[in-house]
Amino acid sequence: MAGQVYPEPSPELAHRRRELVPNTQAAFDAFSRQVFADGALDTKTKQLIAVAVAHVTQCPYCIQGHTKAAQRAGATAQELMEAVWVAAEMRAGGAFAHASLMIASLSEDR
């Protein structure tokens, strides 16, 4: 793992995580299955959202896993890249919008 920030995902790590708190892991797994099941939004759309959010939260595991899941659900490389651009704009937009807090905090008197 020298030089790596994150460990490579492995069955051993997944097993250990499940072993430490099995009921919570099982509940999370069920929650995840329900969230990503077809509903008002189809699975492909949900996976595109997940890829965009993963870029904002900067989770490398989520980026990799949801990119693959989105492709399995039929997402194209172009759709995935557009989702990332939406995430980038939203993140930048948040910083831009929060400038109003800074402006409101400016002191006329310094």
Rank of each mutant, 00 (worst) to 15 (best):
T45G: 05
H55F: 02
S100D: 10
P22W: 04
M102W: 08
T67L: 01
A104P: 02
D42K: 09
I63P: 09
R110C: 09
D42P: 03
C62N: 01
H98A: 02
P9V: 14
A88M: 13
A70Q: 07
A50V: 00
E19M: 08
A97Y: 00
A73D: 08
L106G: 08
Y61W: 00
I49D: 00
L20Q: 11
E89P: 00
C59H: 08
A87Y: 12
F31E: 08
V53N: 05
A52E: 09
C59M: 08
A104E: 14
A83Y: 00
Q47C: 13
S100A: 12
W85Y: 11
C62G: 03
A77V: 14
V86Y: 12
A30N: 15
L48Q: 15
S105F: 09
R16H: 05
R110N: 14
R110E: 14
G93D: 08
R33Q: 14
R72L: 07
F36K: 14
V86I: 15
V53A: 12
L20W: 07
G74K: 04
V86T: 14
Y6E: 10
R17F: 13
R17L: 14
G94H: 01
T24F: 08
C62T: 00
E89C: 10
V56W: 05
V53Y: 01
G94W: 00
S32A: 03
Y6R: 06
L41E: 06
S105A: 12
L80H: 13
R33E: 15
R17Y: 11
E12Y: 00
C59R: 05
R16F: 02
P60Y: 02
E89H: 07
A88W: 03
I49E: 01
S107D: 04
I103P: 01
F31A: 13
V5C: 10
M102T: 15
Q25V: 14
V5L: 14
Q47F: 06
E82I: 11
C59L: 05
E12P: 07
S10N: 08
R91S: 12
F36R: 15
G3W: 04
I103G: 00
K46W: 05
E108H: 11
A88D: 07
A2W: 02
G3L: 06
F36C: 12
T24D: 01
A26I: 07
H15L: 06
T24A: 08
A95R: 08
E82P: 09
W85C: 07
S100R: 00
L41K: 09
M81R: 10
C62K: 01
A83Q: 03
R110S: 15
S32W: 04
Q64L: 13
